[in-house]
C-alpha cells in the first residue's frame, strides 16, 4: 500500500515537470519577454529603455535554459526556466505583475472559494443521487421518462443563464439575497445562498442522468437477479445492493474533484463578486497578468494529480476487489 502511494507520488514528478515545461514554453518561448513588455507598457509612446527596464525588474533577462556565463550549478539554475518555473515546486509563486505576493493572495483567497465549493458539491451530490435513485425506482414509468426529459433540457441550458436569471429573479425582483458581494464569517451565508443554489441547479441535469446510468448499469447485473431470487424487495435491492456497488464509482468520481475545489469556480465567483481564487484567476486573465495565470496553472495541475492519487487510495478503501489484491 505505502509502496503504491510512494510510487504514485514519484510518477507525479515527471508529469509536473512536463506541465512546468509546457507552461514555460507557452509563456516564454511563443512570445518573448519583449512581446510581453509591449503588452504591459503599451506599444506606443514607449522607449526600448522602458521595455528593457521592465524585463530586468521582472527577472526575464536571463538565458532560457542554459547559462554559459554562469559557474557550476548556476549554469542551469541561473536561467529563466529554473528561476521562473522550477521554483514553483517549492510553492514559491513569486510576485504578480502588479507586484503583489502571489502565494499570500492564494492563501487568503482560497477560503471564500472553499466556502462556496464545498456546500455546492455536497448538496449537489446528495440531491443528484436521491433524484437518480427515485428515477431508477420508477424506471419504465412516466416519472422516469419525464425526469430524463427534464434532465436533458436542463443540460441544454448554459450555466450563464442560471446565474443571470437567478440573480435577476431572487436578488433583483424578490430581493431575498444580495445580488453579489461577500463577507467573511457567518454573514457569508446570505451571500453564498444564491451561488450555491445556482451551482446545484446547473449540475442537476448532467449529474442525475449520469448517476441514473450508473444505477441502471448495476441493476442489470447478475447479482441483482440473485438478490431477487433471495426474496428481497425492489427497494431493498436498490438501496442495499445496487447503491453500495454504484457508490464506488460515484465516490471516487467525487474524490478526484476535492483538491480542485480550492481553485473555486471561475464563473460563479466572478458573477457574485466572491473574492476567491476563481475570481482571482479571471481578474488575472482579464488583466493579462501572466505570473498569476502561470501559478494557477501549476497549482491546478498539482491539485488534480493529488485528486488522482486520492482517488486511487479511496478505491483501495471502498472497493474490496482492489483492497484485497
Amino acid at each position: 500500500m505505502w509502496a503504491y502511494i510512494i510510487r504514485r507520488i514519484l510518477y507525479a514528478i515527471p508529469i509536473l515537470i512536463g506541465v512546468n515545461l509546457l507552461t514555460f514554453l507557452l509563456f516564454f518561448v511563443v512570445n518573448t519577454p519583449q512581446d510581453m513588455a509591449v503588452v504591459h507598457l503599451g506599444d506606443r509612446y514607449v522607449t526600448q529603455e522602458a521595455i528593457d527596464r521592465w524585463i530586468v525588474t521582472n527577472g526575464y533577462d536571463k538565458p532560457t535554459f542554459y547559462n554559459p556565463k554562469a559557474q557550476g550549478i548556476d549554469k542551469i539554475s541561473d536561467t529563466l526556466f529554473y528561476q521562473q518555473s522550477m521554483r514553483l515546486f517549492t510553492f514559491n509563486f513569486g510576485t504578480s505583475d502588479t507586484g503583489r505576493e502571489i502565494g499570500h493572495d492564494i492563501s487568503e483567497r482560497m477560503w471564500p472559494s472553499l466556502a462556496l465549493a464545498i456546500p455546492s458539491l455536497l448538496l449537489g451530490l446528495g440531491l443528484n443521487v436521491m433524484l437518480a435513485l427515485l428515477m431508477v425506482l420508477f424506471r419504465g414509468t412516466q416519472i422516469d421518462t419525464w425526469g430524463v426529459t427534464i434532465c436533458v433540457a436542463l443540460m441544454s441550458i448554459s450555466g450563464l443563464f442560471f446565474i443571470i436569471t437567478g440573480q435577476y429573479v431572487l436578488a433583483k425582483l424578490f430581493k431575498w439575497v444580495p445580488i453579489s458581494g461577500y463577507e467573511s464569517g457567518l454573514s457569508a451565508i446570505k451571500f453564498l445562498a444564491l451561488p450555491v443554489l445556482v451551482s446545484v441547479i446547473a449540475g442537476i441535469g448532467s449529474g442525475v442522468r449520469w448517476y441514473r446510468t450508473l444505477f441502471l448499469e448495476e441493476i442489470n447485473k447478475d447479482y441483482v437477479r440473485t438478490a431477487r431470487a433471495k426474496g428481497l424487495s425492489d427497494i431493498a435491492i436498490l438501496f442495499k445492493h445496487v447503491l453500495k456497488n454504484a457508490l464506488i464509482p460515484i465516490l471516487t468520481g467525487v474524490v478526484v474533484l476535492i483538491p480542485s475545489l480550492f481553485l473555486g469556480s471561475l464563473l460563479l465567483e466572478s458573477f457574485f463578486a466572491i473574492p476567491g481564487l476563481g475570481s482571482y484567476t479571471i481578474d488575472a486573465i482579464r488583466a493579462q497578468d501572466f505570473a498569476i495565470v502561470r501559478s494557477m496553472v501549476f497549482l491546478g495541475s498539482v491539485l488534480y494529480i493529488l485528486g488522482l492519487l486520492l482517488t486511487d487510495i479511496s478505491y483501495t478503501l471502498v472497493d474490496p476487489r482492489v483492497r484485497l489484491n
Binding site: G18, V19, L22, L266, T281, V297
Partner: peptide, 27 residues
Amino acid sequence: YTYMTLSSIPGILLIAASVLILEVFMN
C-alpha cells in the same frame, strides 16, 4: 505521459493561458 501531462492541467486554465498567449502573438 503526454496525455497525462496535458490532462492534468485544468482545461479552462490551459485554454485561458493559451488564448492569452495567442492574443499577444496576434497583436
